[in-house]
Design a protein around this nucleic acid. Structure first.
Length: 578
DNA sequence: GCCGTTTTCGGCCCGACTGTTTTCAGTCG
């Protein structure tokens, strides 16, 4: 059966192609398809099982989309989408990936010069033909030539994994904050919303007085290899890593509206502006303004702007127009999990695993310093080719851990293991040896390319293994590098509910796995979650902050996460079923 | 294409910048 994610993806493609058909990304049909795609993403129940009337009754979906969804479910195709695909093949769509080329110019280039690909555009630019197209001049031709020449470095579509972007944003913000007059410098945009990948890094700096010095410092940063724009309130640089950083300087009294605007998402902001319009106001990065009088109603803080619009303050991680505006209007936003809720870490490596960096004693001391009530040490099981630990190694570690228990009476020390789920669902060691562990997570580390059915069989088999308490990094993805295994979301959630196996939220910035869609789908289900750091070094115990931010994107409240539970309750749960 | 506590028709988000313009279109975030 076709999944909601697949339907949403096709609706998104419909939106992108309709931009070309309409010649505008603001066209109402485009926005309707985009809204429909978001609505489908946020649904808990499979759309494919619903009738046309039921689909049309859903918020954001109407008769047109309902008919297309039914057509898709019944025939496997959407005729309208097929027509659009034929009219605008992928090579033509790539034209709008050139900075400076939107739908109108792409269509004008096609109609006047027969340009149907970036290669065609390159040739036309070389021949000096582009300036002959109405609305195009010599300057535009020059700019396009530069844009096409730079395409190799990544066009508009290039996205950076969050890990690299966070480090860069931290460096930039710290440098700017040290400039006199700067009272705050913070990353906004998709980074603040904690998206897994970001298109660029947006930084807002609050400056009292002259913005000149902070701008000068910004464009002279050591990581800047090119200054893309340099203005009094707005500049942009390209860094050595190929990531664009935009800086906006604002006055203190506009911090709230600027933060709101630059954090986005675009869809969330549009919803807020609609609410403003309903009340006779306008909302922009400069403030919430009464349209008739021009009087500023709110601008200094996000809180006062949300409050004026009759909304609870919405945590940045939720700002995707995925139901958060409705919840905020009803006062029903969830109390999202916070770092302070966590009482233990259950996915921690030592130097016994080849990839761990510090001995057991150091890792345990670092966990104790964080005030944890329980800790699971989970080095790799023996099946992992390079870093696995044999039986003798595990038994020796168990004795050493035993010896540490006296020193940490406040922290329960669990001797655990990170098992490897084989292609058929088997795990390391044998049942007797496995029974000697206090705790075990199991994850996929090999055979990423089996088909969906085989992947589901192996995950469900591992879940039914009495030794396995949690599935570590459920999809096995590496952000920006590896897609992760093919998944049947419903099967995994049902398996987790049935067996009581927890799904890990892996806090490593390379993973952030389980993905957000999986976490959202867990709402209103009896799936136990767990936030693990996968720490290979004491400082990586701090990955818990990333796991929490990621969980917040998935609307996760603390009660659903096992390692927020008090020690006794957690230990009882950890020991059950084994 | 979707939606409705003024509407089943007539609306649908904001501002800056750039370049080609003689009053505005297109792109971007």
């Amino acid at each position: 059966m076709i999944t909601n994610a697949e339907i949403a993806s096709l609706l998104g493609e419909l939106a992108r192609l309709t931009i070309l058909e309409e010649g505008s990304p603001q066209a109402f049909r485009v926005r309707a398809y985009e809204a429909a795609a978001r609505a489908v993403e946020g649904l808990d129940e499979p759309l494919a099982a619903k009738s046309e009337a039921e689909i049309a009754a859903l918020r954001g979906l109407g008769r047109g989309t309902a008919r297309k969804v039914r057509e898709l479910v019944e025939t496997g195709r959407i005729a309208h989408l097929d027509r659009l695909r034929a009219t605008f093949p992928p090579s033509f769509q790539e034209l709008t990936g050139v900075p400076g080329v939107g739908p109108k110019r792409a269509l004008a280039l096609r109609d006047h010069l027969g340009i149907r690909s970036v290669e065609d555009l390159r040739s036309a630019l070389d021949a000096g033909a582009v300036r002959t197209v109405p609305g195009f001049g010599a300057r535009t031709e020059e700019n396009l030539a530069r844009a096409v020449a730079r395409l190799g470095a990544g066009g508009k579509e290039r996205r950076t994994p969050i890990g690299a972007a966070l480090r860069l944003a931290g460096d930039v913000a710290a440098a700017l904050a040290s400039v006199p007059g700067v009272t705050r410098a913070e990353a906004m945009g998709s980074l603040r919303r904690f998206r897994e990948t970001v298109g660029d890094v947006d930084v807002v700096a609050v400056v009292e007085g002259d913005p000149g010095p902070v701008m000068a410092r910004f464009v002279a940063l050591p990581m800047a290899v090119e200054v893309i724009a340099h203005g009094p309130a707005k500049s942009a640089i390209l860094t050595s890593a190929g990531i664009q950083v935009d800086l906006r300087v604002v006055e203190p009294q506009q911090y709230g509206s600027a933060a709101l605007y630059f954090t986005g998402s675009k869809a969330h902001n549009i919803r807020l502006r609609q609410r403003a319009i309903e009340r006779g106001w306008t909302l922009s990065e400069y403030g919430l303004v009464e349209a008739a009088s021009g009087r500023v109603l709110a601008s200094a803080t996000e809180e006062e702007i949300y409050a004026a619009l009759g909304l609870q303050w919405v945590p940045p991680e939720l700002r995707e127009d995925a139901g958060e505006v409705e919840s905020a209007a009803a006062g029903g936003l969830p109390r999202l999990i916070e770092p302070a809720d966590l009482r233990g870490d259950l996915h921690v490596h030592t130097d016994l695993s080849g990839d761990g960096r510090e001995p057991l004693e150091v890792m345990v001391a670092a966990a104790a310093a964080r005030g944890y009530e329980y800790l699971g040490i989970t080095d790799h099981g023996e099946d992992l080719a390079s870093n696995g630990v044999g039986r003798e190694g595990m038994l020796a570690q168990r004795s050493r851990l035993e010896g540490l228990r006296e020193r940490y009476p406040g922290m329960a020390l669990l001797h655990g293991v990170e098992l490897n789920i084989g292609p058929g669902g088997s795990v390391d060691y044998d049942p007797e040896f496995l029974a000697g562990f206090d705790w075990a997570v199991a994850g996929v580390h090999t055979h990423f390319d089996l088909d969906r059915e085989a992947q589901m069989r192996r995950i469900l088999t591992a879940m039914r293994n009495p030794a396995v308490r949690a599935i570590a990094h459920p999809t096995g993805r590496i952000i920006g590098r590896r897609a992760g295994i093919d998944f049947d979301l419903e099967a995994v959630l049902a398996g987790a509910e049935e067996t009581g196996t927890a799904l890990e939220i892996n806090g490593s910035l390379d993973r952030l796995d389980a993905p957000v869609e999986m976490l959202r789908a867990c709402r209103d289900r009896r799936v136990v979650l767990l936030i693990g750091t996968d720490a290979h070094h004491p400082r990586e115990l701090g990955n818990v902050a990333w796991g929490v931010s990621h969980a917040r994107r998935g609307w996760v409240e603390p009660a659903r996460v096992a390692n927020t539970w008090p020690r006794e309750r957690f230990l009882e749960w950890a020991a059950s079923g084994r």
